[in-house]
Design a protein around this nucleic acid. Structure first.
Lengths: 235, 235
DNA sequence: GAGTGGTCTAGACCACCAA
DNA sequence: TGGTGGTCTAGACCACTCT
């Protein structure tokens, strides 16, 4: 039954935004019990094809359109491509002690203070990416000496500029991409539907001396976020 | 119930590889019916936490370890990081007509012949990444003039070298990362368990004149594939 | 209020695995 | 063979949405 319904959906018989037949109808059509039908729908839900809505019906989801077009260097693209500006807000700032992973990324010791900025990248009123950013104490100090206290900054995205001002010009970034299913907390914050994975990016930014300036851990909504990188090929 | 079990798993009470209590036991413990317990386990399954195994039990999955370490330029990393060589085999070669998307990527017209190579990247006997690669006719011809027929090549990964020989040196690649749940076919080929997403990479390779040389669409198993890129920051 | 999906129950039978 | 999870049924009640 799931196979047949999937076929009807992908073939466009039930276009995105429309609803598939309600449970009682499917029970009749396939001569199956209610939970059997629900199980089939559950599979399609976890494949990201449909979204059951209480009181409304089971609607076919919008396709994550595959217009992965060429983009300039290091951009984040959200879709649908609307003109509304994205927001990038710092929701939390604090000093934490480096754990093993952070220490390794920043090439510093364990249990030393690092500055943690937690940011939410918002688009169309929905949080589409979580961004945790760790900055070594030394650099936060260097920035403070220039008269800027990171803890008071609520505008985000200018950290590279601040680092440059402080004498640490970011020169190279290393990004590692992976994917997984979201935790319940991430699902909540990112307003993710059932069966939507997250795009995980782990980043280290370095200066010309290969010294790590910051490391980030980003979790993006898989149905709204895509990231494009342009890199030269070593020859 | 799902919340409590999730807590027990993530806290390490049920470590990876171990089994959570069997259905009858959980029914007793929570005073719930069989299908109610199964529903809770189903949620954890689709979060990627556990894998029910008929005749064995419901085992806690191995963590996709987050040792996202620094890697050199443009590498693909699979884990667990074993020494066994990966294989990259061409499973299918054919001429197809360009559709709208491929035409856009390669900056050529629709309905002109392009060469399609379908590859399987294998690790430890499991296919871990699917790779469809489209190459414009002109370039396949240029390579053929150098005495190499792409259709007869079964070794993969040397296309960049061949292009260079043919006078089209690849200089820059643009990669777009996204994620989604696998189709049933992908799930089958990649041996994916329930609740494992795929990492999707759309790539365009260009030469020094910004002319597209090839475009690729790669689908990697989310529980085994990660990709690291190192890029310079434009200043 | 009528119609939608969400949860839960109690019981049955099937498929797979290990000892 | 006994224990595991997978599927299915029939019925009940709840929660939500629209008119």
């Amino acid at each position: 039954m799931a196979t047949e319904l999937r076929e009807l959906i992908t073939s466009g018989e039930y276009p995105p935004g429309s609803a598939i037949p309600p449970l009682p109808e499917l029970m009749d059509k396939y001569g199956a019990a209610r939970d059997t039908v629900r199980e089939a729908i559950s599979r399609l839900t976890h494949e990201g094809l449909v979204s059951p809505r209480r009181g409304i019906g089971t609607v076919v989801r919008q396709r994550a359109s595959v217009d992965l077009s060429y983009m300039p260097n290091q951009t984040v693209q959200t879709w649908p491509a609307q003109t509304e500006a994205e927001k990038d807000t710092v929701v939390h700032c604090t000093w934490v002690d480096s754990d093993e992973h952070i220490g390794k990324q920043l090439e510093i010791a364990k249990n030393v203070p690092v500055f943690l900025r937690t940011r939410h990248q918002t688009k169309d009123g929905m949080v589409s990416r979580l961004h945790d950013q760790w900055i070594p104490e030394q650099l936060v100090e260097a920035i403070r000496k220039k008269g800027i206290d990171l803890a008071e900054e609520t505008e985000a995205g200018n950290i590279f500029e601040l680092l440059k001002i402080a004498g640490y010009t970011p020169t190279i970034v290393t990004e590692t991409f992976s994917t997984r299913m979201p935790s319940p907390e991430e699902k909540e914050i990112l307003s993710l539907e059932e069966g939507v994975p997250v795009l995980v990016i782990s980043r280290v930014t370095r200066d010309a001396n290969n010294k790590p300036l910051e490391t980030s851990y980003m979790v993006g909504a898989g149905d709204r976020i895509t990231q494009t990188l342009t890199v030269p090929i070593k020859s």
